[in-house]
């Protein structure tokens, strides 16, 4: 059995709001083996960022997070205090957040922001930490990195800041990197560069990657596995090749409909639109969340729980009507 860098079961995130409790993540399972890339895809608002941020333990205080099992980077965090999770941050686990441009502190130099984590965690001297920062900046393609350490974020373009964020996330040599749509704010050519870079770094450093993206071209290019999220649950999860070859869930099929040839689709193609709207996540929900938009919906789709059909190694689909050909 391969070593799991992330194994999380039945992750639930709920947020109290004025209109009631928002059950934004409703029982998500994610597993990522060492060195693998899991892409998490799904429409806007389905809970991808909340899932990622809760894994990091960085949700606002008022958000309630529960899991049945939470293993990360070789540590069992199930039911553990936030302090234990905090110990992993910046060391074994790092995250690149959704908006790259505002994730750098405008009042501190790049050098300071890159080095402060490892200087603490690994007790590196300033010069050793700076040497590593220069190495990382060089890897992510920032020209003349040594000279740029003393500059402030406003002296860099959006694409450069994004690269700096990646370099910053890699400073502590994490085992698991969570990247939340790391390229959405960037133009298409830079997107391609950054993703190629992530793929390379991932292969070189042997890190596991949880990549959240809207871009199916990216998924086809770098995912080992794909989890398709819908309304706070994983509708389908499969090895990337299998998913593109034979999607099982009607929602996945809808997503893939616009992509004729996997892997050949140009990057930057967004998820295609599916008619209808995502159901509200306030309060409890009965049956399959997708059934109102589903072409093959049947009365039994309103039953709880929606059956999960296991279909071979690392593959499952949550659909009453799915005919799994494993």
């Amino acid at each position: 059995m391969t070593e799991m860098m992330l194994d999380i079961r039945n992750l639930k995130v709920s947020i109290p709001t004025e209109r009631g409790t928002l059950n934004a993540v409703r029982g998500v399972d994610l597993q990522i083996a060492r060195g693998e890339t899991l892409c998490l895809v799904g429409e806007s608002g389905c809970g991808k960022s909340l899932t990622a941020t809760s894994i990091m333990g960085l949700l606002p205080r008022y958000a309630r997070v529960t899991t049945d099992r939470f293993d990360m980077a070789g540590q069992d965090l199930t039911g553990k205090t936030a302090a234990k999770l905090a110990k992993l941050r910046g060391r074994d686990v790092a995250m690149i957040f959704q908006d790259p441009t505002s994730a750098l502190n405008p009042t501190l130099t790049i050098g300071r922001q890159l080095t402060e984590g490892v200087m603490r965690h690994e007790k590196l001297s300033r010069s050793a930490a700076e040497a590593r920062a220069i190495e990382m900046l060089d890897r992510v393609g920032i020209a003349n990195p040594a000279a740029r350490l003393t500059q402030y974020p406003h002296g860099f373009s959006g694409g450069q800041r994004q690269r700096i964020m990646i370099a910053s996330a890699l400073m502590g040599r994490p085992k698991l990197l969570i990247a939340d749509e790391p390229t959405t704010a960037l133009d298409v050519t830079i997107q391609a560069q950054i993703l190629t870079l992530l793929g390379e770094l991932q292969a070189d450093l042997g890190l596991s990657l949880l990549l959240i993206t809207h871009d199916l071209g990216v998924v086809a290019a770098i995912a080992t596995d794909v989890a398709v999220m819908y309304a706070g649950r994983i509708a389908e999860r499969a090895p990337a090749r299998d998913l593109f070859a034979a999607p099982q869930h009607p929602y996945t099929k809808g997503l893939l409909a616009a992509i004729p040839v996997p892997g050949v689709t140009p990057r930057g193609s967004a998820l295609p639109a599916i008619p209808g709207r995502v159901p509200g996540l306030i309060g409890t929900m009965q049956g399959c969340a997708f059934r109102d938009r589903c072409a093959i919906a049947a009365p039994e789709c309103a039953n709880d729980p929606v059956p999960r059909i296991e279909a071979g190694q690392g593959r499952f689909v949550e659909c009453t009507k799915a005919e799994v050909t494993a």
Partner: peptide, 10 residues
């Protein structure tokens, strides 16, 4: 975001 990023750094 930069405060959250600082926390993410540990």
């Amino acid at each position: 975001d930069y405060v959250r990023a600082a926390r993410a750094k540990g």
